[in-house]
């Protein structure tokens, strides 16, 4: 078991015991292959994450044709170009931030999120405070991330109620003219692809 910061002389807590008991019951009944559990964990803990999405955004910033295509059907083209496909990424559409529009994504009903490009969602995305607040008060919600959106900019909130998944393409930061996709990728954060922050600025964040 990986070290998780707990003193190993502590007795395990109730949840640890409950999940261990369930896992051993399912293994004993022959309903679960433990090697398959490891595949699932390895995939989402180490292989799939927001680095995937950052590659998609960087390409969209340098390639207007690619940007146009991913706003219609992102899933097909990112499978072709990057091999990103699978669960919770079957039907992705990109939504582009512009000088007039800022997009932010939520799932008010559960935790729907584009796994193939962003990995598993952070705790705050799955929790009641963000899910309840951002649809009614997006500026207030974004302020909790230190993000201020100009009053004259329209904030569009995308509530992921179906199996469609939305990926925000943040605005390309100023001062990055001539940058390569590899250089640009470093400016793209997970939070900027959910829409709660802007992309990093080369002047202030790098």
């Amino acid at each position: 078991m990986p070290h998780d910061g707990h003193d190993h002389t502590d007795p395990p807590d109730d949840l640890t015991l409950r999940v261990k008991a369930l896992e051993s019951l399912l293994v004993e009944k022959g309903l679960v292959d433990t090697a398959a559990l490891d595949v699932v964990i390895e995939t989402y803990e180490h292989k799939i994450g927001p680095k995937n999405g950052a590659k998609v955004v960087a390409r969209a910033w340098v390639n207007p044709k690619f940007m146009a295509v991913i706003k219609e059907d992102c899933s097909t083209v990112i499978d072709q170009e990057f091999g990103y496909k699978g669960r919770q990424g079957e039907h992705i559409m990109a939504v582009e931030n512009t000088p007039d529009v800022h997009n932010v994504v939520v799932c008010t009903l559960c935790s729907c999120y584009p796994w193939t490009v962003l990995g598993l969602p952070p705790v705050w995305y799955k929790s009641a405070p963000f899910r309840s607040k951002v649809v009614q008060d997006p500026r207030g919600a974004l302020a909790e991330f230190g993000t201020t959106i100009a009053d004259d900019k329209e904030i569009r909130v995308w509530d992921s109620t179906s199996e469609m998944r939305y990926l925000v393409i943040p605005e390309r930061p100023a001062g990055t003219e001539g940058w390569s996709e590899d250089q640009l990728r470093a400016l793209v954060t997970r939070n900027s692809m959910i829409g709660v922050e802007e992309a990093k600025s080369p002047e202030t964040d790098l």
Binding site: T108, L109, P129, R131, S132, V135, Q136
Partner: peptide, 17 residues
């Protein structure tokens, strides 16, 4: 689970990315 527009659920308190 149907949380959109509910009040009083506290700060978002995001962990740094």
């Amino acid at each position: 689970h149907d949380l959109g527009g509910q009040h009083g659920l506290g700060p978002i308190n995001p962990e740094p990315e």
